[in-house]
Amino acid sequence: MIERLGRILGNQRGQIVTGQVATVRPPIATPHLRKDAWWALPVTVVIVLGSFIVYSTWAALQNAYYWAPPYLSPFYSPCLSAKCLHVTFGYGLPDLSLPIIGILSPAFLILWGPGLFRLTCYYYRKAYYRSFWLAPPACAVRDVKKGYTGETRFPLIVQNFHRYTWYVAVIFIVLLTWDAILAFRFPAPGGGVKFGIGVGTIVMWINVILLAGYTFSCHSCRHVCGGHVDVFSRAKARYGVWHFFTRLNERHPVFAWLSLFSVGLTDLYIRLVAMGIIRDLRIL
């Protein structure tokens, strides 16, 4: 009936009809009709995410002030280079020297892991496709670029391998938890270590909890741990796990931002303590 109606109306207007009633979109020239401050969110994301990228790159290039016993900055954990201020596994890799840059900071040996996890994260993809790609800048606001191909071609097709970066991110959560445990072991005046709690210990624990919240609320985690099942009644354990991660997944954007702030602020706190600008207060 629709096709018949299409033929009748189309012929009346002299238009090409392909089983549709009409073929021409509403002639509205303006790219959008929104009256609210739709630009505020993308601008905020550019500022916040851009600031974090600038700060973390600067901190990684420093190759100093990342160890204030017993605190190790998350940007340098695990510290794999032999010349690390605090070698994580007791031995280290030889220093890598690059032209122009010189000796490569140990941060660059490991930051690709959490960096790729955030880069391919479904939530951050939404944030930066809107804010940096402008595809689209906001809902019902026209894409800036033409020739859109989405995630069908290299390099963006690689985003579909997000789950591998999640596997790596889980390893980092284990390592950062170990660092947070070590943050209770303060150097004793006469040598050795003794138990204690400083503000830095609390900062490191808050950081690792938020990072774990972000990592385990991930969409890939939810799928791998149970979302792939079609008949939950035959996989009760995986249904329970999936249900728990689904509740966590609802807060994924909150964890994404809070953990971003916490990891940057933890590095800043340890850096300031290591530089002697602030003194770490001992609670216990």
Binding site: K126, A135, C139, T152, H219, H223, G227, E250
Partner: peptide, 27 residues
């Protein structure tokens, strides 16, 4: 589906509040 870059506008406008992106497209 590869053309979808999960910017979640579909979820934002859904009058039935279906989590189109999180519960449908991403899975």
């Amino acid at each position: 589906i590869g053309l979808c870059n999960i910017t979640k506008c579909c979820t934002e406008v859904c009058p039935e509040h279906i989590h189109i992106t999180d519960n449908g497209i991403i899975p």
